[in-house]
Design a protein around this nucleic acid. Structure first.
Length: 123
RNA sequence: UAAGCAGAAUAUGUAAUCGCGGCUGACAGAACCGAAAGGGGUCAGGUGAGGAAAGUCCGGGCUUCACAGGGCAGGAUACCGGAUAACGUCCGGCGGAGGCGACUCCAGGGACAGUGCAACAGAAAUAAACCGCCAGGAGACUGGUAAGGGUGGAAAGGCAGUGUAAGAGACUACCGCCCCGGUGGUGACAGCGGGGGCACAUGUAAACCCUAUCCGAAGCAAGACCGAACAGAAAACCAUGUGGCUGCCCGUCACGUUUUCAGGUAGGUCGCUUGAUCCUGCCGGCAACGGCAGGGCUAGAUAGAUGAUUACACACGACAUAACCCGGCUUAUCGUUCUGCUUACAAA
């Protein structure tokens, strides 16, 4: 991903869960916390309750792909944790994509209208 | 052709665009991150999950720790021979059970080493007379009897005959069982001959147990190397200072600074894929498998890479995602194809 890192340490996940704000819809839960940097960091969590390994991997890839294709819509400087809920296990790409963008708008870190990262598009 | 039996192969495909993990080559060999170790750029090419990758149920390699030798405990296995690195796996047999057959299935050592258990029913369960039958007696009843009834998973080999008062391996034939001998086979065992009238007298070892054989423990988050932080040891420095012994001086100790050594957390690198390897051919073997020759290299991530979109095709796509590596077992599964064989019918 061009503008983002992935969130790796369990410690970082715990920080976002504890101090961040959260919104949820039918398929996903999104936690967000400002990280005082130029970049976003994205963490994806799919519980074993959702399904077996094949289902969990597919959901992780769908969420990552949705974020990648709309990366320029997100404001920068946030740690995001996306948690998949059990209802998401039969979803296709389109449903995950719209659910992700919906949660981003609730957090007010997604611009509905235009691309915003012009300062980063200079390079 | 129909019904079946055994085995094997395959596991949506094609094209385009965007994206991801290794690898190779070229150009840089910088910037940047980090104390260091180390990481890291751009472009191109090529490559990138399974038959079960699953369950983690067995067996081995590998690694670290432990280990003179022996025994106990605990666990596993249990007809015979072979294969193998090894196995509880596989192959070929034996015995038993099922099927017309191809073929399938088997928790298949020991109950004269010992202990336990066997409900209910039944007269009685390891010990026999309830009914019946026979004899005696007027009768009550006494005696004989395991052929018949009834109970039960099991009632003292089965069945037929002789025999008898009625009966009984009491006697006889056949079958079964036990013992002995020799034959074939590496062996489990098979079949042959002779003998015993059948005794210990039931079942249960998936009850404890006995016998024989095997087993050290933990696992790649193993482990090896580098190594901030942080404890430690030694040496040097007393230039200044603080505190204790002590109110002061000397002395000494601790704190202090530098260097070296050893340990080692976070972090990093390796382990990490060339192997009991795969493919083809020939040879040995009924087979599992082994030998020889030639050829191939086919993921290696470390929060964890295979996805998204579009188009087309049809059978409309099941189960399921490597995590050190192999050999098995078990379980899940949409379909398609092939090979060999059996039975029935038809044809010849």
């Amino acid at each position: 991903m061009k503008y983002s890192q992935s969130l790796k340490k369990n410690r970082d996940f715990q920080t976002v869960y504890r101090k961040g704000t959260s919104y949820a819809n039918k398929y996903l839960v999104m936690y967000a916390l400002g990280n005082q940097s130029e970049e976003n960091r994205l963490g994806i969590s799919v519980s074993k309750k959702v399904g077996n390994s094949v289902v969990r991997h597919r959901l992780t890839r769908l969420i990552r792909e949705s974020y990648r294709l709309h990366e320029e819509l997100f404001h920068s400087g946030w740690d995001l944790v996306i948690v998949s809920r059990a209802a998401a296990k039969d979803c296709g790409y389109k449903e995950i994509e719209s659910a992700l963008l919906h949660l981003g708008r609730l957090h007010r870190i997604v611009d509905t209208e235009r691309k915003k990262k012009n300062e980063n598009d200079n390079d």
